[in-house]
Amino acid sequence: MTRTYISRHPLEDLLPLEPGIRAVDHLDIPRAMAIAAVMAMDGEEAAVAAGLAASGDVQVRFTGPGEWLILSQSETPEELHRNLSLLLAETAYIVDQSDGRIVFRLSGPNVRRILAKGIASDLHPAVFEIGTSSNVLCGHISVNLARTGENEFELIVMRSFAVALFNDLRVMGREFDLSADFSAQG
């Protein structure tokens, strides 16, 4: 008997926060995203970094020296894995994390004031520039933080912490009536 298995998002029962309401400060959560951890082989760090920088379709997040998280909206996890394997053959190890990581996109005029309630890093526009990414502590939870736009940040968290981080962000954003929902595009 062939079965079809439906994937479930850990915030399935919690979103939208308030149906139909989208505030200026908003938390947008993609339902599915292809994510892979890339670890450069010894001595190949620069080659891998260059290879990743040249591949236009994916987003590259710095997690540690020689280590990145790669995000793709258009590929399936298998496609991303395959394409990265081709791109980085013999230079990096690739681990699928599409189910192991949950992505939160926070945007709005008060985004820095919201994040300052959990993150110690200076997020001033001149200091934390667009395109910067790094692992940081948000409250008690380690996340990968990236600045993706003028007033847009992305947080990637381990799946088991997704509900806890969501609850934290909700409290952090309460002052600004932060709204939250799954991404429209899927």
Binding site: P10, D13, G139, S160, A164, N167, D168, V171
Partner: peptide, 18 residues
């Protein structure tokens, strides 16, 4: 701060929690 009650420590949930 907010680190009290349910938020005193983050709760980790298994994918099989539900």
């Amino acid at each position: 701060g907010t680190a009290r009650d349910e938020q005193a420590a983050p709760v980790r949930k298994s994918p099989l929690y539900g």
